[in-house]
């Protein structure tokens, strides 16, 4: 049973159709990167997988069950999503926000358990933000906020980790650190899906690539097999020269 499966999913906002018959699945232990031009439906696909939207047609299956059949609490124990950078309340204490990752694992009246505290501390350490945990979110830089939000998602745990442009605001060191952590989550047995814009990072960290174009799947497979010069020209409308090195695919403009 695949932790995540999208079966012929169609979705639109009002009369504007965003996704057309999108199908793919992600296995446990696999890291899938979704790439494609702006507005091609990448984030909407993640919103469907995270149960924030329901498909107009087709199915979203999480751990073999329709996503809509879960309660929000049960769903949050399986699926965690790092959304694109949204505003966080400036007066919110950073550690309190990370602790919210454990909300779905606590009983109605229960306080945080030792296990919860350990998960929170571990996530703060992994994102290298433990020393900022007592600060308010409004005092942190964009990159620090993003790492704190990733710590919240890591503290949440679960079988599926969804990341929407997770490297936004991060410097190079923390971009690699976050992607390494995401890949380790996959190696630990989670199904990981990340929307990425950087082909090199996508090819270096992901096992498979899903290339999207105008709400449809335009390619699905290994990085080397999907991120070809022809596919990139067809989808992005730019001519590039592709080079493969050390498992990574590099593309440079053919006409700078």
């Amino acid at each position: 049973m695949d932790p995540l499966r999208l079966d012929g999913a169609c979705f639109g906002y009002g009369s504007h159709r965003v996704l057309h018959d999108v199908s793919f699945s992600v296995q446990a232990g696999e890291f899938l990167a979704i790439v494609g031009p702006n507005g091609c439906g990448k984030s909407t696909t993640l919103r469907l997988l995270a149960g924030l939207e329901r498909p107009d047609a087709g199915r979203v299956l999480v751990m073999g069950r329709e996503a809509a059949s879960y309660s929000r609490r049960a769903f949050a124990r399986h699926v965690a999503l790092l959304t694109q950078g949204v505003g966080v309340p400036p007066a919110l204490v950073a550690r309190d926000m990370v602790a919210m990752g454990r909300h779905a694992r606590q009983g109605f009246l229960n306080r945080r358990s030792r296990e919860d505290d350990a998960a929170i501390d571990r996530a703060l350490e992994e994102m290298e933000v433990a020393d900022l945990a007592h600060r308010r979110m409004g005092e942190l830089s964009g990159g620090q906020v993003q790492r704190m939000r990733m710590a919240m998602v890591l503290a949440q745990g679960g079988d599926v980790l969804l990341l929407d442009e997770p490297t936004t605001f991060l410097d190079l060191r923390h971009q690699y650190g976050l992607l390494r952590r995401a890949r380790r989550a996959a190696r630990e047995g989670r199904a990981v899906v990340a929307v990425l814009h950087d082909f090199t990072q996508a090819s270096l960290y992901a096992d498979r690539i899903l290339l999207m174009h105008e709400g449809r799947v335009a390619g699905h497979g290994t990085p080397g097999g999907v991120l070809t010069e022809t596919a990139i020209h067809r989808v992005f409308g730019v001519r590039t020269r592709g080079v493969q090195m050390g498992g990574a695919v590099f593309h440079i403009p053919a006409e700078p």
Partner: peptide, 24 residues
Amino acid sequence: FLFSRHLDVMVTGDDQAALLGVDV
């Protein structure tokens, strides 16, 4: 006071609260 933890998670926004397991 009973629901304070649920109310607290709501400060992150409707979508984020739903993702964290709140029936918004």
